[in-house]
Design a protein around this nucleic acid. Structure first.
Lengths: 153, 153
DNA sequence: TATTGTTATACTCTATAACTATA
DNA sequence: TATAGTTATAGAGTATAACAATA
């Protein structure tokens, strides 16, 4: 006996904005759009800032490590770093112990740009979650971290 | 006087996974990947299911309304609905009062597919947020809704 | 004139495969 | 043989512009 035949108790169809995937996708898109708009005056994208952050924090030193930390393919890193190198924001140096690897460093100008861009990004994020207040914003971040640490196993 | 000259108190660089944009992007990607894997046996994608849901819920009736509710361009809707129509999941009919508009309906087979796919998607979501427990999962959803309702103004 | 759906086209992000230089 | 970076290429997903049918 189908659900429809068992007394007309078909559950109502979920609305699109009750779906977690929808909420995550559009929160991501809105967040990136807002941050990119704020970063535009510095002529850097949130994608580029993500790579700069991984380099500045010491989480990665070679191209491939940057790509791995950010979860993208190493081939996607080439064009991104090409532009950052052409504009004098990063420098590539062959690693002394293994000349296949490119060590990526922020130039002094790149470090200045990063510091300013990161301030802009932090302010943009804070504005993005302003409706939540500090505690719920922190809980949101932690929930996403928890979900990711189990999903990415 | 720059921050570096004021006593060496440069704030530590944020780690990449403390950045809300990173967390949202990768939570979105992981969620979609998991749902798409679960839906593969039904030969429907989470993107298609999103359109079917908007049609099934009555939130939209024409192609352009479906696109607007989902926040994509109307031109992106054409190929997606082409496939769903070719496989007998939806039907397009010109609206009697305005023959420019295409009313989109689920076929009986489409409605069956939608009901099964939605069950699969709900189960996939539940698994995705299993680490949070019911209350934090609900709070996550609400936080994303709150953030989106202020961001999309 | 304006709007719906459509097509053609292009751009971004991503990934796969093959190449090079090094190990 | 294997690995880091690179190049060429292709596939999604998205958007803009122009067109046909209809209002």
């Amino acid at each position: 006996m189908s659900k429809e035949e068992s007394g007309g108790q078909t559950p109502p169809v979920r609305r699109h904005d009750d779906v977690l995937g929808y909420l995550l996708k559009h929160a991501y898109l809105a967040s990136e759009e807002q941050t990119d708009a704020a970063l535009a005056e510095l002529q850097v994208t949130s994608r580029e800032l993500g790579a700069l952050r991984v380099i500045a924090s010491g989480e990665a030193s070679s191209q491939q490590e940057v790509a791995a930390v950010l979860g993208v393919d190493r081939t996607s890193m080439v064009a991104l770093l090409d532009r950052l190198e052409d504009t004098g924001i990063v420098a590539r140096h062959p690693a002394p112990q293994d000349r296949r690897r490119n060590l990526i460093e922020l130039t002094p100008a790149g470090r200045e740009l990063f510091d300013r861009a990161e301030q802009v990004a932090v302010a943009s994020e804070r504005e993005f979650v302003a409706a939540l207040g500090a505690r719920r914003a922190s809980e949101l971040r932690q929930a996403l971290r928890d979900v990711l640490s189990t999903a990415s196993v």
